[in-house]
Design a protein around this nucleic acid. Structure first.
Length: 219
DNA sequence: CACCAGGCAAGTA
DNA sequence: TACTTGCATGGT
């Protein structure tokens, strides 16, 4: 799929490198991945700031903290009861199966790591893949709402394509390159935020020349 | 005021 | 398997 390379070039030229994932440690990346589920990154930043303020971005602190305490700190990220539980589930995985060491979890190969993460209640495909790519730095393509929307509106995939099919498209069409996958996903989120919202704003979009005749496709 | 954001799981038929 | 619903804050 040559179009995948073209899209990447256009986005990179328009926006430049995105320097993802914002975060100082693998644990912070993983926490952020849970907190940003269906949530704007702006709100996640507030929650992360609260955790840092409380010196709560270490495994030990998080593990020792009560559900109520954790929930209150991450409140700005929304779904805070649910996400506190999901973070605790992730901590439990690390404590129970990886000797309480994040590095031991992250040293698994990408397939085993993905499966381990998916076994946690509250971690689905996108969150798991975000952790594999941005915390473990292994080449897996992260598919999110914007990725799907951009491809569908341009007619590059079927509207009923699921997560696995979209991910396979990128895996088949691109070199298996962690830096490429990193930058590409971040750029798709960027163009999605600015142009490929629910109601599209294609006027100044870097990809507008690639639209089908008659504009973006819809269901 | 309504709508949306870097999803996921559980319930229903 | 294929839909539907709950979860929640903060910005536009």
């Amino acid at each position: 799929m040559k179009v995948l390379h073209d899209v990447f070039q256009r986005l990179l030229e328009a926006y430049g490198p995105q320097q993802w994932w914002p975060g100082d440690s693998p644990l912070e990346v993983m926490v952020g991945a849970v907190l940003t589920q269906n949530t704007s990154w702006k709100n996640v930043e507030r929650a992360i700031a609260n955790l840092k303020q409380a010196r709560a971005l270490t495994l030990d602190t998080l593990h020792a903290m009560s559900h109520e305490e954790l929930a209150e700190l991450i409140r700005p990220a929304g779904y805070y009861q649910l996400k506190a539980k999901r973070l605790k589930n992730l901590l439990a995985l690390i404590a129970d199966r990886f000797d309480g060491e994040v590095d031991e979890l992250l040293s698994l190969n990408r397939t085993q790591l993905r499966d381990a993460l998916l076994s946690v209640n509250g971690i689905g495909p996108e969150t798991a893949d975000s952790m594999v790519l941005y915390a473990a730095h292994q080449p897996i393509f992260v598919v999110d709402t914007y990725t799907s929307r951009v491809l569908k509106r341009h007619g590059w995939i079927q509207f009923d394509a699921d997560y696995r099919e979209i991910q396979e498209l990128f895996h088949m069409g691109l070199a298996e390159d962690t830096e490429l996958f990193n930058e590409y996903h971040a750029l798709l989120v960027r163009v999605g935020n600015q142009h490929c919202r629910k109601t599209p704003k294609c006027d100044a979009c870097p990809l507008r020349a690639m639209l089908p005749d008659g504009g973006p496709l819809e269901e």
